[in-house]
């Protein structure tokens, strides 16, 4: 029991560098912040929209400001607009998330937008993404799904 606590303490101390991972690569949790079902449709162009579910289980408010891939590409938070029948995404510099709140990044609603992809994403690929929440960072694995997909292949499971 003492040993387990020690491991837990070490793990907590090591966050965010080694956030807890469920082994399925679709749940990441650190300091009460929880991200599940991060996914993106396969792309052919240089742009990818990444979706996920974020829960702030901590007792403090956090602010999502964006993300970065393992190779240093910035991803910005964007919100969907539909003006005059034309689909567009507007950049949201920040998104506060109060304690106990959840935020769903969904197609045609809210997303993290990665621009300047060197190679297209194909189904089955994984992207390592570092989310920036105020002074915290959370690492997530983003699953690449079908180009016309509407959700994470594990969505609907409970974690």
């Amino acid at each position: 029991m003492r040993q387990l606590s020690l491991i837990a303490a070490l793990l907590l101390a090591a966050t965010p560098l080694a956030a807890a991972d469920d082994g399925h690569h679709h749940l990441t949790e650190a300091d009460g912040l929880r991200v599940v079902h991060a996914w993106t449709p396969a792309t052919s162009g240089p742009e990818a929209l990444i979706y996920m579910e974020i829960e702030n289980g901590s007792d403090a408010a956090v602010t999502l400001t964006g993300a970065e891939t393992a190779d240093g590409q910035r991803a910005e938070l964007v919100g969907f607009t539909y003006t005059d029948g034309t689909e567009a995404w507007q950049v949201l510099p920040e998104m506060p998330l109060a304690a106990g709140q959840h935020l769903d990044l969904l197609p045609r609603t809210l997303a993290l937008r990665l621009t300047g992809l060197a190679t297209p994403l194909t189904k089955g690929d994984k992207i390592d993404l570092e989310l920036s929440f105020s002074d915290q960072h959370l690492y997530v694995h983003v699953a690449v799904e079908d180009a016309g997909g509407t959700g994470h292949s594990h969505a609907g499971h409970t974690h």
């Binding site: 507007q90 998104m95 709140q101 935020l103 769903d104 045609r108 609603t109």
Partner: peptide, 24 residues
């Protein structure tokens, strides 16, 4: 706030209520 509507959409998407953007 610019982010407000998006935050509210997530916030009120829950078991006893739905929140949606007609644009979406």
């Amino acid at each position: 706030a610019l982010w407000g509507n998006y935050a509210l959409q997530s916030r009120y998407t829950r078991a006893d209520m739905m929140a949606f953007f007609p644009g979406t």
